[in-house]
Amino acid sequence: MRRWSPSLWIGIGLLAVIVLAGLFAPWLTPYDPLRQDYGAALRPPGPGHWFGTDSLGRDIFTRSLYAIRTDLVIGFWTTYVPMVVGVLLGAYAGLVRGWFDTVLMRVIDTALAFPFLVLIIVILAILGPGTQNIYIAVFLVGWTMYARLARAEMLVEGGKDYILAARTLGYPTSRILLRHALPNIIGSSIVFSMSDFVLNILLVSGLSFLGLGVPAPTPEWGAMVAEGKDFMQQAWWISTLPGLMIVVTGVALALLGDGLTHRLGDRHVTGG
């Protein structure tokens, strides 16, 4: 019986590499992520600087490694916490329907009626700037997407007879939700989280640029990509590596999620 799917292995492998690279960044590179060196500004990739340097002469590779620390935390709070909460709420609403569903949908419709960014800026205006408040703001808006997605899937899945069969066998709702329904409906949320992760990193960097988030010199992928945009003609390499890092991390997390789904479905295998 297949317990560990290839996606789980690859996901874990990739993520482990990324996390370790973040942790051991000081040992993996001789440069300081913050030190500016105008003499070495805008160097193309070469022996000294594998991925080149930026306009302030900082080593891109070094900064990309150090940024892992910042960005995994950002991703966790802006993508995966909203995802878990949203999927659970949405799936539960889709399963039990009734007033809970009605209320949840009203809330979601209201939130989605405003442009995403506007809403976040309004929330930030109320809470004040700071990374923590960005997480809160993104969370407050972000979970609704997942809730809607999971609810829609659940409405279809909940009509299937195996869910009904579980009900006629008297299984409690939590068991039906977590063991029977979730593994079958979470796929689309995981796929969505991949692009969501990328967008959230860019969003946070955009907010940082407005002075609302991560302060300037701290290495952060989104900010590096944004900076590189201005130098696209002369120095394409500035955005390349951080951009790649965002995508690879998103893919790794999605593979991990996909693999975990299979595990979730098989979890109650005992002695089978």
Partner: peptide
């Protein structure tokens, strides 16, 4: 549709 696609018959 009446069987959970992710569970074996024994499960």
């Amino acid at each position: 549709s009446s069987l959970n696609p992710r569970m074996t018959i024994a499960q």
